[in-house]
Structure formats: structure tokens, C-alpha cells
Amino acid sequence: MSAETKTAAEAGEAAEPMGPSLVDRIEASRFLGGEFLIWLWYESERREGAFEIEGFGGVSFWLEEQMTLRAEGAQGATASESALKGAMPSATPEAKEALRQGKRPTKAKARLERGPQSWSFVLNADPLTLSAVKVPGVIKDGTEEQFFERMQLAEELEGMIYALYGEFLALRVDPRWEKELAPALARWVAEDPSA
């Protein structure tokens, strides 16, 4: 996904008009936020945290401190939920067991490091949003300069996360997902970390 932004006019021209069609697409794609979280979880373990992001270079990414997984019951109500905490909750047997029970991550705390800079944040699955974002240390003096730096760092984080999202989506719509990646994910889910 391009790291560059575009004008509202360009966005308006490129996008479909509002109406049932866009709403249908939004609703049909909602589950992909949770699958993106699972993919990040899986890849961060497989790659040992080392990601190469187009436009940004090498970064380290890992899940930490807290993760919530939920199974939906009838009409979207929560059937059961696992709220895991600890240094690396994603590496615990409980986390994999929750996946085996059909739960999906709804949010996870993560850290991303690029060179000397480090961001911590919570990635929410539905809707796909960032919260509790802590940007690398900013200049302390000057309200306006501080604001610009905070925004630049937040936009940089968005750029990296949404670039990863683009990488995930390109894989997800590829026929190889069903043939190779989904089975690999399933084998990973079935693994017992305590074994």
C-alpha cells in the first residue's frame, strides 16, 4: 500500500459513491480485520519479528502485553471471550487454544520499531483502527511544533501498518491463500506452544 496520501478530491474520484453498494462491501469485508491480526501474529512469529515494509525498510514488529479474542454467538452477541495479559500473551498456550475454540482476536497490543524509533499501540480488528498510540519521544517545547511532530509520527505508523495490511490483502485474495497459506495457518493454530 502506498505510503503517500492523496487529496480528498482524488479520493472522491477514485472511490465509489455512497450507497448500498459501498455499504455492502464494507459489511462483507469486516471480518478481514481479525484475519489481519491473526496473520500479523503468525508472521511475527515466523519471521521472528523482522518485517520489510515497502517504502519504510526493515522494522521489528511483535505483539505484547495484552490480547483479546472473542467468539461470536447468535446475531453478533459475544459467546465467549478470552482477555490475555502478560509479557507475550500471544505466545501462551491459552492464546492458541482460544483460536482452536473458534475465537478470533478483536484487539492486540503491539510494538513496532524502526531504527531508534519505537511505537506502541493497540490494533483493533473491527473496525480496523489504532488506539492507545504512543509515538516515539517528541520535542517538548512549542505546542505547534509538538503537534506537527506527533501527527507526522502517527501518520508514519499508519503508513507502516496499512502497508502491512496491503501485503496481507494481496495474499488473501490470491488463490495460493487457500492452497498454501490457510493450511499453514491451520497447522500453526494446531501447534501446542507448551509441547
Binding site: A28, R30, D126, Y162, Y165, G166
Partner: peptide, 23 residues
Amino acid sequence: DGAYVAALEGELPAPVLEGMTEL
């Protein structure tokens, strides 16, 4: 913003946008 809108605004190729909604 959300799963589909982020992809739309991120200028992902049309086949990805189309494919997303059929998954």
C-alpha cells in the same frame, strides 16, 4: 475507516478490492 475503506483509500489494485468482498 475500516477493513474495506482502508483498502479503498490505500489505492490497492482493483482486483484486490474486488476480491476482498468475495472472500
